[in-house]
């Protein structure tokens, strides 16, 4: 269920500064983007705090049926979560801790949250990283094949398959892959990650299906955007000129078209990478992969508020940072935008 890439136009944000030296304009532009990112993160923290503590009754959720019976536990939890204090004070305390790297203490097992989640963060990071490394050549490759056969039968078939895949929820893809490759049809790969002492990637076979699921969930979007950019470029005048000069179609596709599709490609890949941070929730649950997604689902089930707050801040933070980097990269790679800033 990745989002359809609504490509932000990086230039839209930029009012070309007048009468200043190029490097000053650059510094101003970067400062403005950093400021906006920090502002977004701050608002994200407000939203996370309100959603986790202010909307429902956390203690009632944690204790369930015991709420009315166990007064001592209610008092103890109220103490631990500081619920006697005003919401503003609690928010400021939490934010202060967050800025100092203190993520609080887990309610479920009383361990510091930072210590609890660190290995899961690393596991998820590796999973997303491997998926991205596999994703980029696969998506661009499919797009190039499709663009090569543009408006002919193979292109239509590829596009219809991609469209069908794009709508499938990740857990559907994941379970179908498990049934196909590990339990029902073939028995080649392990169905779940068995939590051992080391990292999951110590056994490479464990990583195959989770990575495949993430790639299958995201590649269709990237491919479709890259293909439509390729087609746009292939219809342009300078590509026509290159063809008329006698340059073979393959070289035209690779040199003239692909390089111009890189910038929209970066933007859609970055949006999808940020989306992967959420996609891991389903994929890790399907495969029992010990990452932040699986931990998040467990913590939500246990109403472990400090862990949920920390994990949601991490996921939203990744989104903001990845978007920032992608904006910067696409401006640097587009000569038109570069001059718009420094002129």
């Amino acid at each position: 269920m990745a989002d359809v890439a609504v490509l932000p136009e990086p230039l839209e944000e930029v009012a070309p500064p007048k009468g200043r030296h190029g490097s000053v304009a650059w510094i101003l532009w970067i400062a403005r983007r950093l400021g906006l990112a920090v502002l977004t993160l701050w608002l994200v923290s407000v939203l996370v705090f309100i959603a986790t503590t202010a909307l429902g009754d956390p203690i009632r959720a944690i204790l369930g049926k015991d709420y009315n019976a166990d007064k001592a536990r209610v008092a103890q939890l109220t103490e631990q979560l500081n619920l006697n204090e005003s919401a503003v004070k609690r928010y400021l305390d939490w934010l202060g801790g967050l800025l100092h790297g203190d993520l609080g203490t887990s309610i479920a097992n009383q361990r510091p949250v930072g210590q609890l989640i660190s290995s899961n963060v690393l596991n998820s990071f590796v999973l997303v990283l491997i998926s991205a490394v596999v994703l980029i050549p696969v998506a661009f490759g499919i797009a190039m094949i499709s663009a090569n056969y543009r408006r002919k039968r193979p292109d239509t078939v590829i596009q219809t398959i991609l469209l069908a895949l794009a709508g499938l929820p990740e857990f559907v893809t994941g379970i179908l892959l498990v049934a196909l490759f590990s339990t029902t049809v073939f028995h080649w790969l392990p169905a779940v990650t068995i939590a051992g002492a080391g990292h999951p990637w110590d056994q490479p076979s464990v990583m195959v299906l989770p990575v495949a699921t993430l790639v299958l969930a995201v590649a269709p979007y990237v491919s479709r955007i890259v293909r439509s950019t390729l087609l746009e470029v292939l219809d342009s005048d300078y590509v026509e000129l290159a063809r008329l000069k006698g340059i073979p179609e393959k070289v035209v596709l690779r040199k003239h078209a692909l390089l111009n599709a890189v910038v929209p490609g970066i933007q859609v890949v970055s949006l999808q990478l940020a989306w992967l941070a959420g996609g891991v929730v389903f994929v890790e649950t399907v495969f029992n992969y010990p990452g932040i997604g699986a931990l998040l689902v467990d913590s939500v089930r246990n109403h472990d508020i400090p862990v949920v707050q920390a994990l949601s801040m991490i996921i939203a933070g990744v989104y903001v940072v990845v978007n920032l980097i992608a904006d910067l990269l696409s401006i640097l790679l587009t000569p038109r935008s570069r001059t718009a800033i420094s002129s």
Partner: peptide, 17 residues
């Protein structure tokens, strides 16, 4: 938008029994 769609639902469901 910084929240993946499923995350927004999960965050709120934390405090709901």
């Amino acid at each position: 938008l910084a929240f993946p769609q499923i995350l927004l639902a999960l965050v709120v469901l934390t405090a709901v029994n």
